[in-house]
């Protein structure tokens, strides 16, 4: 479904990704693991077009994403929940969600998708006229996920959705991600919380200093000696 092939990405002259290749298959949840600065966010930003690779290709079905205008990538069915949520702070919850449908994929069906999102996150319906900047961290994360769902994506990419949230909220969000997969949306997840990510995901890639160092089934990675030592503290 989504194939990254030998990507080199730079920030100015500094190379951030080195020959990154990975694959996301339809209906699965793939997690990209690694510590801060390993290149996970860079990888997602390159897929969504905010960064351009200097070398390599990104295929989504027949579409070459690295040659597609960044704003039109969402139209093909790739939605991103960016790191730090990046809501529109002076817009209401409803407005934030509607902006998520600001593309030919989501606009026509926006009202019914909005109801679906409110069903997934009932608390957002209670807060719908509140400015997004005034919400709690957990609620903001829900808006960020809901906003991405508004484009009715084929692949949902999440960048550190657990960052800075209470364990209870994290648990709830991962439960919702499970439900989203069951309804047929594919997920690509960046996560520092390796423990919870490997419990939920089907497969995983481990990134270290801008390279993929390990890949495999989640059940195999959880048993892997290096993963256990470096990321699970076992």
């Amino acid at each position: 479904m989504l194939n990254l092939n030998d990507l080199d990405v730079f920030y100015g002259d500094a190379q951030a990704l080195w020959g990154v290749s990975m694959e996301v298959r339809e209906g699965e949840m793939v997690t990209l693991l690694g510590s801060n600065g390993a290149g996970k966010t860079t990888t997602l930003k390159t897929i969504s077009g905010l960064l351009r690779p200097r070398k390599g290709e990104i295929r989504f079905g027949d579409v070459r994403l690295e040659r597609t205008e960044p704003f039109s990538i969402v139209r093909y069915g790739i939605a991103q929940v960016p790191e730090g949520r990046r809501l529109f702070p002076n817009m209401t919850v409803t407005e934030n969600l509607l902006v998520g449908a600001y593309n030919s994929r989501g606009w026509a069906g926006r009202q019914s998708t909005l109801q679906t999102v409110y069903k997934i996150f009932p608390v957002l319906q209670q807060r719908k006229s509140q400015l997004a900047g005034t919400l709690s961290g957990g609620e903001q994360q829900m808006v960020a996920i809901g906003r991405a769902l508004m484009s009715q994506p084929a692949i949902l990419m999440l960048d550190e959705p657990s960052l800075g949230l209470a364990p209870k909220i994290v648990e709830m969000i991962f439960q919702i991600l499970k439900d989203i997969i069951e309804k047929g949306t594919t997920i690509l997840l960046n996560e520092q919380n390796v423990q919870i990510a490997l419990q939920v995901a089907h497969r995983g890639y481990v990134m270290e200093s801008g390279r993929i160092s390990l890949e495999g089934e989640a059940s195999a990675l959880i048993e892997n000696e290096h993963v256990r030592k470096a990321y699970l503290g076992l």
């Binding site: 704003f71 990046r86 529109f88 600001y102 593309n103």
Partner: peptide, 20 residues
Amino acid sequence: MGLRATAQDRDAATLMGINV
């Protein structure tokens, strides 16, 4: 709405499909 979103967070607006 697109204009306000762009003003508040350009990159996020791009991710939503807004031609900034």
